[in-house]
Design a protein around this nucleic acid. Structure first.
Length: 575
RNA sequence: UGGGGCGUCGUCAAGCGGUAAGACACAGGAUUUUGGUUCCUGCAUUCGGAGGUUCGAAUCCUCCCGCCCCAGCCA
């Protein structure tokens, strides 16, 4: 039996490989073949507006919106807002902004489960009429006791056999506000002996006097997730309801509700493994700990794995999307290496970030044979492989700054940079040779004297002699002073565990996750850098203009990610 | 001990009875006015283990082992 493969050209899309196969696509292909759902594909991204989105949500967003795009279907944005105690409009707005920033457009209006409260209530009444739901007056504690345990079956509630009439009466009065919170709940009548705890007469509605961010005080009873989600999906005509693995146990309940009500659409729930990323945490609970314990500066701290944090850090949305494609979708619990995310970020930035020169830890260099009052302008391309990005002028003068790391009085083997007597190239400028070193009383190098070769303008030597090192530099008189924040991974350990706010957890935090540098010297062209502008500081890394703390003409830069650094590896091996 | 899932390279992951894709990471080398980029090269005789079926098994069957989830009036 021979397999048929489409020609590669039919599979590959501009730059990207073929859409990776995964078990969900396989299922959809089968559904399309069998004519189930008439070939439609409608998905949804259903966050609860009780916090900020993080990169784990991005995986779900890319999956759901990506499926809709690839299959010519639709993807809805629906807020699962059935618990007014936890939800706020602030989150609704932030989530919408994050989804849009990631580059996705939802089909139709933004939807809310709360839009369906009236219909959900009617469905509940129908369930009662069919003898499939009852009002239970046990306390929350008693309900737990009656539920049994993982290994022991539960017991029926004494209220389980109330008449339809009585149930209807009680349920309407629950809605009318005649009872205290917790006095009654509506429960599905399924099976108290089920091995699946979700089927032991799950609660469908509870009384909750709380102000809802959209419906205000219209309701005092609110439907539970398990009851709401499947019906919301059904109402919206969702075909594939994709959620994470921990909901596998809920699928029988999802199906039970739809099987026991006169609905015309019965979507299928499909579960996939949520994202775990090394050196970070992705649960909302732990993220909150980081914020409230003051370990980070807020939800959008550039070290946070939140979408707003990654954005402020300078991660391009395209890189996040590509990351989500690379990690794939499966059912296996896994831990993705942070290095993969950093790789997709560099991959994107390498193509789109203009190159620019910035000296983070300045060391003064005086070109002793360069005229005191002379100024020149060198030309530097914004991108070595993409001429369409143009170039800019780089003022050059007698006094310059270079990186402290680029000079040493005691060069180790294979050190290509500046040292006494050595010649290096200043990028786009001249070859210079170190002729003198000025130190302070403590023996610290404070200034380096060099001579330049006027015959090497632009960085080329006519006699063909080579230099091994090329350094970035900035003219002292023309430099723009700036603050630059060096960010690194928040955690020092691959898998942070436990209470992050606890004192003993401090050792899990990377002490170098943030270093603020204030005396940085940038090339003058950066004065016009726009907020969120992304650049490569040559030889250092990718940096972006901080959205919050920059002011016109005075940018603050955040380091997105360093460049790969093979010298660092060589140097480390030497030790 | 009940129910539901999952085990393929260091990390993700394809594979769906015809003889182990790809990516990251890692290690070499080439090119380079970024120790960047790019480009080559290497990297699972083996798919949690043991049996079995078959001409043929990561794929089918049996047993065993390991890991994850579930006892909210949260989602």
């Amino acid at each position: 039996m021979s397999k048929e493969h489409p020609p590669p050209s039919a599979l590959s899309v501009a730059g990207e490989g073929p859409a990776p196969g995964n078990f969900i696509r396989t299922r959809i292909d089968q559904d399309n073949l069998s004519g189930r759902y008439d070939g439609r594909v409608v998905t949804r991204f259903p966050p609860e507006p009780n916090g900020y989105l993080h990169i784990g949500h991005a995986k779900s967003i890319c999956l759901n919106f990506g499926l809709a795009t690839d299959y010519g279907g639709a993807c809805h944005l629906r807020f699962d807002d059935t618990n007014p105690l936890k939800e706020e409009v602030e989150y609704v707005e932030a989530i919408e902004a994050d989804v849009r920033w990631l580059g996705h457009a939802w089909s139709g209006p933004v939807r809310f489960a709360s839009d369906y409260f009236e219909q959900l209530f009617a469905y509940a009444v129908e369930l009662i009429r069919r003898g499939k739901a009852y009002v239970c007056s046990l306390s929350d504690l008693q309900i737990r006791e009656f539920r049994g345990t993982l290994t022991q079956p539960g017991q029926n509630s004494p209220y389980r056999d109330r008449s339809v009439q009585e149930n209807l009466d009680l349920f309407y009065r629950m809605r009318a506000g005649e009872f205290e919170d917790g006095a009654h709940v509506l429960r599905a009548k399924i099976d108290m002996a089920s091995g699946n705890l979700n089927l032991r007469d799950p609660v469908l509605y509870r009384i909750r006097r709380a102000d809802h961010h959209r419906t205000g005080d219209k309701w005092c009873i609110y439907p539970m997730y398990d009851y709401t989600h499947c019906l919301s999906d059904s109402i919206e005509g969702i075909t594939h309801s994709i959620c994470t693995l921990e909901f596998e146990d809920h699928r029988p309940l999802y199906d039970w509700v739809l099987d026991n009500l006169p609905v015309s659409c019965h979507p299928q729930q499909i579960e996939f493994a949520r994202l775990n990323l090394s050196y970070t945490v992705l649960s909302k609970r732990k993220l909150i700990q980081l914020v409230t314990a003051g370990i980070v500066d807020g939800w959008d701290d550039p070290r946070m794995p939140t979408i707003s944090g990654l954005r402020r850090r300078g991660y391009p949305p395209q890189a996040i999307r590509r990351f989500c494609e690379r990690i794939g979708v499966a059912k296996r619990d896994s831990m993705v290496d942070l290095a993969l995310l950093e790789h997709t970020v560099r991959e994107e930035l390498n193509v789109c970030a203009p190159r620019v020169m910035a000296v983070l830890r300045p060391l003064r260099v005086v070109i002793v044979n360069y005229p005191q009052d002379k100024n020149e302008e060198m030309e530097g391309a914004y991108h070595p492989e993409d001429a369409s990005m143009g170039s800019r002028r780089l003022p050059f003068s007698r006094v310059l700054y270079i990186e402290r790391d680029d000079f040493t009085t005691d060069p180790p083997k294979k050190y290509f940079r500046l040292a006494p007597g050595r010649e290096v190239r200043l990028r786009y400028a001249y070859y210079i040779t170190c002729v003198d070193v000025i130190t302070d009383d403590a023996g610290e190098v404070v200034e380096v004297h060099c001579t330049y070769d006027p015959e090497t303008r632009g960085g080329w030597s006519k006699d063909g002699r080579k230099v091994k090192g090329t350094l970035h530099w900035v003219s002292a008189a023309h430099a723009l002073a700036a603050e630059v924040r060096l960010y690194d991974r928040l955690f020092a350990v691959e898998t942070p565990t436990g209470d992050l706010a606890a004192p003993e957890s401090a050792q899990m935090i990377n002490p170098q996750s943030l270093e603020v540098l204030s005396g940085c010297k940038l090339e003058p062209a950066l004065a016009g850098a726009a907020p969120e502008g992304r650049y490569q500081f040559e030889r250092l890394g990718y940096f972006c203009v901080d959205l919050k703390d920059s002011t016109p003409g005075v940018p603050v830069f955040n380091r997105t990610v360093t460049l790969r650094d093979s010298w660092k590896k060589i140097a480390a091996r030497r030790d």
